[in-house]
Design a protein around this nucleic acid. Structure first.
Length: 552
RNA sequence: AGCGCCAUAGCCAAAUGGUAAGGCAACGGACUCUGACUCCGUGAUUUCCAGGUUCGAACCCUGGUGGCGCUGCCA
């Protein structure tokens, strides 16, 4: 019941006002994607914003496919979008709708407009309509069809529907104002002729409504109160209101626009992501370097972390771009209480405890998560030969370095103290083996003296070989996100880096999608898609921050 | 050029006429069987600029400047 007293965002203030003035007595929102691609982090903001508003005001939330243009739409995308919305936790219950299910009502409303003298059939070609629309400073020219009688328009429109005319030969236009400063109001096209098979209605229709006409009707039919969308539809709001009024809907919905979600130096935007996929620069829609919902899920991001991110980023009408740091903070914050901690050595080097009996091993018990004791413990094999992280040894220690170096004693996490006695090197000077002596009197939990450093390790006799996948940013940080011509400046180093690592054997039961914190190496999850030759593949979800900065 | 929207710290973002919240990032420091986490501390004499109204302006007005959107039979 600890209700946080967070400041209301501007949409909530609008809703409060509507409720107070009695414009609406409830709240009903929707997420209306066109099924023409996969959802990404930007859609997550739209989904969670609309869903969140419904929740806050005890209202309802619909998922509706805005499938009025069969040219671009596919059933494949319908399925993935439903899965993504559900995964994010935006519960639309049984309210899954398709705009195409409203085609009959839309057709009736078009007839109503014609009867009111508010719509007419045009014989102009697409080029002619463009040419006569005028531009920012020139008013448009009136369409000859504008003066047709209602009877003529009714007849022509019905014949359009009946398939008597060729694709593109006629359209239905709303009769508004060819001189409007807002170009969207210059007699927009409402229906086009297109003989295309629709994924939902098949070949029933050869005329299809356009967004500006269809969307307000869809909202009105579903009883939507607040139709929240992104800023690029702002100039369409007068049209939205015009249609909802002229189509004579009672208690019509109202549109409110908010700024899109952008991430700095990350490829957002359907068409750019699509291009990366099509050009083969990434492996697919769920390539973990992408920020599609599918990619984030595969990468190991949780729905809670994305929800937190959307809330943290806030809502406004100002164009903005969030630092990726904020998203990463959210997943770290979420996972730190959910993910068990395990030891993994990404860049192994052997450590031999010369005074530990050969052939002997023992088990040590280590908590799975220090902050969540209820998570329990796991048993890890300890022995004479271990692997430790290359960076946890320095032959000549840096300033304030308190890991392993000759003469220094460190804690082997969960086991004993060990004092470094030296190392072996190959001809090139690379450290191949580190030697140390352990102190059997200083077992974890029984120590009588303190030591400054703790390092992680895995047993050379009982560990798992695995592959981990690290990622580098796809986009060049120096040059920014996009060029003026819409091309991408790809980071020349952008790639997936596969590394061989050693994991403690208690990880052998890991299942796809499981997330872990690899001590000091960050959070990883088991990849749901590919495990090469039976060995697990881990994706790095996010790294940890380190305040250790060795000075020269 | 016309219409519309926007401008608060490196990045998000509150404050909506009463004297600039919070988060991320950064930087100090404490703590730590993860150099993680946590905890403490450090930031705007000022809200794009210039005027105006007002006892009082980030908020209202005027004029600039800068950014974004709109001239699909896409959504």
């Amino acid at each position: 019941m600890a209700e946080e007293m967070t400041a209301k965002n501007f949409i909530e203030r609008e809703i409060d006002k509507d409720l107070a003035e009695g414009v609406y007595d409830h709240v009903h929102t929707r997420f209306p994607p066109e099924p023409n691609g996969y959802l990404h982090i930007g859609h997550a903001k739209a989904i969670l914003t609309n869903y969140g508003l419904a929740q806050k005001y005890n209202g309802k939330f619909n998922l509706r496919f805005d499938d009025t243009n069969p040219m671009k739409e596919k059933t494949e995308f319908v399925q993935s979008i439903i899965a993504d919305v559900k995964w994010l936790g935006a519960d639309f219950e049984d309210r899954l709708y398709f705009a195409s299910d409203y085609f009959d009502e839309m057709y009736e409303k078009a007839i109503l407009l014609i009867k009111k003298g508010k719509a007419y059939v045009s014989d102009l070609s697409a080029e002619e309509i463009t040419a006569t629309r005028g531009d920012f400073v020139t008013p448009g020219k009136e369409d000859p069809g504008r003066n047709r009688t209602i009877e003529e328009n009714l007849d022509l429109f019905q014949r359009m529907k009946n398939g008597e005319f060729e694709d593109g030969s006629k359209v239905l236009r709303a009769r508004i104002d060819m001189a409007a400063g807002n170009i969207n109001m210059r007699d927009p096209v409402v229906y086009r002729i297109a003989r295309l098979t629709h994924h939902n209605t098949g070949d029933k229709w050869c005329i299809y409504p356009l967004y500006d006409f269809a969307h307000p009707i869809e909202d009105a039919i579903e009883g939507i109160t607040h139709s929240c969308c992104t800023l690029e539809f702002e100039a369409h709001r007068p049209l939205y209101n015009w249609f909802v009024t002229e189509c004579e809907y009672e208690n019509p919905p109202r549109q409110i626009e908010f700024a899109k979600m952008y991430l700095t130096n990350v490829v957002t935007g359907k068409r750019y992501i699509k291009k990366l996929v099509e050009d083969g620069i990434v492996d697919g829609w769920d390539d973990p370097r992408l920020v599609t919902i599918a990619a984030l899920r595969r990468r190991g991001y949780t729905p809670d972390s994305i929800k937190k991110f959307v809330e943290l980023a806030g809502l406004s009408k100002a164009d903005s771009s969030c630092d990726l740091d904020m998203l990463e903070y959210c997943i770290r914050d979420d996972l730190k209480l959910k993910a068990p901690r395990l030891m993994a050595v990404l860049h192994p080097v052997k450590l031999i405890l010369d005074n530990y009996p050969e052939g002997q091993t023992e088990e040590v018990e280590i908590p799975l998560n220090l902050e969540v004791p209820e998570m329990g413990t796991r048993k890890v094999t300890f022995g004479r030969e271990l692997y430790i992280e290359q960076e946890d040894f320095m032959e000549v220690p840096a300033h304030k370095y308190f890991r392993m170096f000759p003469g220094n004693e460190v804690r082997l996490m969960g086991a004993y103290y060990a004092k470094c006695t030296g190392c072996e090197k190959d001809a090139d000077g690379n450290v191949t083996v580190i030697h140390a002596e352990y102190d059997p009197t200083q077992k974890s939990g029984q120590e009588t003296r303190k030591v400054k450093g703790t390092i992680h390790w895995v047993s050379a006799d009982d560990c798992l070989d695995a592959t981990v996948r690290l990622y580098e940013n796809l986009v060049d940080e120096e040059k920014g996100k996009l060029n003026a011509d819409g091309t991408l400046n790809l980071n020349p180093n952008s790639r997936t880096i596969l590394e061989h690592c050693k994991l403690e054997s208690s990880l052998k039961d890991a299942k796809p999608f499981d997330s872990f914190q690899f001590v000091r190496n960050g959070f990883f999850n088991v990849d749901c898609r590919d495990s090469e030759d039976g060995r697990p593949v881990f994706n790095r979800i996010v790294g940890l921050k380190s305040s250790f900065k060795p000075q020269a």
